[in-house]
């Protein structure tokens, strides 16, 4: 229902405490960060953008943990497939 896109904070706008300049794939837009007030948003942080507002700061540790899980099962799958290929080429039933 709600398009939310990750973007990287490039800079905080000097005279407007609610605004940050955010880059998405190299295009930039001013994003309102009032809803993240007190979270110390800084350049280099990644935030989730929806209708010109930052709704959430992306938690890099959580992202890394989830990605490690995905990579783990990806590797396990590759190993299984390799094992399967070996067994079918070397096994007596091959061909």
């Amino acid at each position: 229902m709600c398009l939310g896109i990750p973007g990287e904070v490039v800079e905080l706008v000097a005279d407007q405490p609610d605004l940050a300049r955010v880059s998405v794939g190299g295009v930039r837009r001013a994003v309102n960060i009032a809803l993240l007030e007190g979270e110390g948003v800084a350049p280099g942080d990644w935030i989730l953008i929806h209708v010109g507002f930052a709704l959430s700061r992306i938690d890099e540790a959580e992202a890394r943990a989830a990605m490690e899980f995905l990579e783990g099962i990806g590797q396990a799958y590759e190993d299984e497939m390799d094992a399967l290929r070996e067994s079918t080429t070397e096994g007596p039933g091959a061909g």
């Binding site: 398009l3 896109i5 973007g7 880059s23 998405v24 794939g25 190299g26 295009v27 837009r29 953008i49």
Partner: peptide
């Protein structure tokens, strides 16, 4: 990349 970025942002 920039076309993709703008396209993602605007859906």
């Amino acid at each position: 990349d920039e076309v993709r970025g703008a396209a993602e942002l605007l859906g």
